[in-house]
Amino acid sequence: MNVLFLCTGNSCRSILAEATFNALAPEGWRAISAGSQPAGYVHPKSLALLEREGIATDGLASKSWDGLPVTPDLVITVCASAAGETCPVYLSPAPRAHWGVADPARATGTEAEIEAAFETAYRTLRHRIEALLALPRDLAEKDLAKFKAECERIGTLVPESTRTA
Rank of each mutant, 00 (worst) to 15 (best):
M1T: 15
V3W: 03
V3S: 09
F5C: 14
F5H: 12
F5M: 12
F5S: 14
C7L: 12
R13Q: 12
R13N: 10
S14P: 09
I15K: 03
I15N: 03
A17M: 07
A17P: 08
E18T: 01
E18F: 02
T20Q: 07
T20L: 04
N22S: 07
N22F: 06
N22L: 04
N22Y: 09
L24F: 05
P26F: 02
W29S: 00
A31N: 05
A31F: 06
S33D: 11
A34N: 00
G35I: 02
P38M: 02
P38D: 05
A39Q: 07
Y41R: 08
V42P: 06
H43E: 13
P44N: 02
S46M: 06
L47C: 01
L47Q: 07
A48P: 03
L49I: 02
L50W: 02
R52E: 12
E53M: 13
G54M: 05
I55D: 09
I55F: 01
D58T: 14
D58I: 00
G59Y: 13
G59I: 03
A61R: 15
K63S: 08
S64E: 04
W65G: 00
G67V: 03
L68Q: 04
T71N: 00
T71W: 00
P72F: 02
D73H: 10
L74E: 07
T77K: 08
C79V: 02
S81E: 14
S81C: 09
A83F: 03
A83T: 02
A83L: 11
T86Q: 14
C87D: 10
V89E: 05
V89N: 00
A94S: 09
R96T: 12
H98Y: 10
W99E: 06
W99G: 02
G100L: 01
D103T: 06
A105Q: 04
A105K: 06
A105C: 06
R106K: 14
G109R: 01
G109N: 03
G109P: 06
E111D: 15
E111V: 10
A112K: 11
E113L: 03
I114E: 11
I114F: 14
A117P: 12
A117T: 12
F118Y: 15
F118A: 10
F118H: 13
F118C: 11
T120F: 07
T120Q: 14
T120W: 07
A121F: 10
Y122E: 08
Y122Q: 12
R126A: 15
R126M: 14
H127Q: 04
I129W: 05
E130K: 14
L133S: 12
L135R: 11
L135A: 07
P136Q: 09
P136M: 10
R137F: 09
D138E: 13
A140G: 03
D143H: 09
L144M: 10
L144V: 09
K146M: 11
F147H: 10
K148R: 15
E150L: 01
E152K: 11
E152D: 15
G155C: 09
V158D: 00
S161C: 08
T162S: 12
R163T: 04
